[in-house]
Simulated scan of single mutants.
Amino acid sequence: MRITVTVDGTEYSDDVEPRMLLVQYLRERLGKTGTVIGCDTSNCGACTVHLDGHSIKSCSVLAVQADGSEVTTIEGLARDGTLHPVQQAFHDNHALQCGFCTPGMIMQSVDLLADNPDPDEKAVREGLEGNLCRCTGYQNIVKAVRDAAHHMRPGAGPEAERVDERTPSHAAGGE
């Protein structure tokens, strides 16, 4: 089957097997290896990406289901060499150890903050409950998400103009 999908602002058209998972398409065809294959059962969330602006587990979506859609991967969050505020907060707050869950955690966190720009600790934990981390115990992850929320508030600095980072740059007037 032929699909056309926009990934990180670039449109791709490819023939794919009807049974190819979106995570396989992103990694194997497009080289978007930041999208991690964790469990293949949608339990861990390591493969989380944004499909049309909302987080999904790409191991539970077929590539053909993404036909005509926009996908944002962890590679697509940074702009012009500057990390997204959530990426920066994960770095600043040491919210990663082995790094395996980090791309999915960041993608889910961006979606969480778009829906709830000022989550308390409980809201962060509930918003990330579909993503598993085996290293950190979530303390620094929660801290990072709350820190990112603080930095993304209007008037908080350069990040303030990033209202909804789920929107790919070309749709927001970028490249």
Rank of each mutant, 00 (worst) to 15 (best):
Glu70Thr: 13
Tyr12Gln: 09
Leu113Phe: 14
Gly68Ser: 07
Asp15Ile: 14
Thr73Val: 12
Val36His: 14
Thr6Trp: 04
Arg166Leu: 05
Arg153Asp: 05
Lys57His: 11
Asp92Gln: 13
Leu83Cys: 07
Thr6Lys: 13
Val16Cys: 02
Asn140Ser: 09
Gly34Val: 11
Val163Phe: 10
Gln88Ile: 01
Ser69Asn: 15
Glu75Lys: 09
His94Ile: 11
Thr35Asn: 00
His54Glu: 15
Thr136Tyr: 09
Gly174Asp: 04
Lys143Val: 02
Asp80Cys: 06
Thr4Lys: 08
Arg19Tyr: 11
Arg2Thr: 15
Arg29Asp: 15
His84Ser: 06
Gly68Phe: 13
Thr6Phe: 01
Val124Gly: 01
Gln139Val: 13
Glu159Phe: 13
Val142Ser: 01
Ala172Lys: 13
Val49Asn: 04
Leu51Asn: 11
Thr48Ser: 08
His91Asn: 14
Asp164Val: 12
Thr136Ser: 15
Gly173Pro: 08
Asn93Ile: 01
Val23Asn: 00
Asp118Cys: 00
Ala63Met: 09
Cys101Arg: 10
Gly174Tyr: 05
Tyr138Gln: 06
Met105Asn: 03
Ala78Ile: 07
Met1Phe: 10
Arg162Ser: 05
Asp15Arg: 11
Leu77Ile: 12
Ile106Pro: 00
Asp92Ala: 14
Thr48Leu: 04
Val23Ile: 06
Asp67Asn: 15
Asp14Val: 06
Ile3Asp: 04
Thr167Trp: 06
Met105His: 13
Leu77Arg: 09
Val61Arg: 06
Leu96Cys: 02
Arg134Tyr: 08
Ala66Cys: 11
Leu26Asn: 11
Val7Arg: 01
Ala144Pro: 13
Ser13Met: 06
Cys98Val: 03
Ile74Pro: 10
Ala46Arg: 02
Asn93Thr: 03
Ser58Asn: 03
Asn93Asp: 04
Gly34Cys: 12
Gly130Ala: 00
Gly173Ile: 03
Thr41Lys: 10
Asn140Leu: 00
Ala89Ser: 10
Leu22Lys: 09
Asn116Gly: 10
Lys32Gln: 13
Ile3Tyr: 03
Ala114Leu: 14
Leu132Phe: 05
His84Ile: 07
Ala156Ile: 06
His84Phe: 04
Glu28Thr: 04
Gly99Trp: 02
His54Gln: 15
Leu77His: 10
Met105Pro: 08
Thr4His: 08
Val71Thr: 14
Cys59Ile: 01
Arg134Gln: 09
Gly53Val: 03
Thr33Gln: 00
Asp118His: 08
Thr4Gly: 12
Glu28Trp: 08
Thr82His: 14
Ile37Met: 14
Ser58Met: 12
Leu21Val: 06
Asp164Glu: 07
Asn140Gln: 11
His151Gly: 12
His54Tyr: 06
Arg19Ala: 11
Ala160Val: 03
Gly155Trp: 12
Val64Gln: 12
His151Asp: 13
Glu75Tyr: 09
Thr33Leu: 02
Ser169Arg: 11
Val124Glu: 11
Ala78Gly: 15
Gly9Ser: 13
Gln88Phe: 02
Ala172Trp: 10
Lys57Gly: 11
Met20Lys: 15
Ala160Cys: 05
Glu161Asn: 07
Val86Glu: 08
Pro154Cys: 00
Pro154Arg: 09
Asp115Thr: 15
Val163Trp: 01
Gly99Met: 07
Met1Gln: 03
Leu51Ile: 10
Glu126Phe: 04
Thr102Arg: 04
Ala156Pro: 07
Pro18Gln: 13
Ala149Ile: 08
Lys32Ile: 01
Gln88Tyr: 02
Met107Cys: 01
Cys133Asp: 14
Asp80Ile: 00
Lys32Cys: 04
Ser55Pro: 01
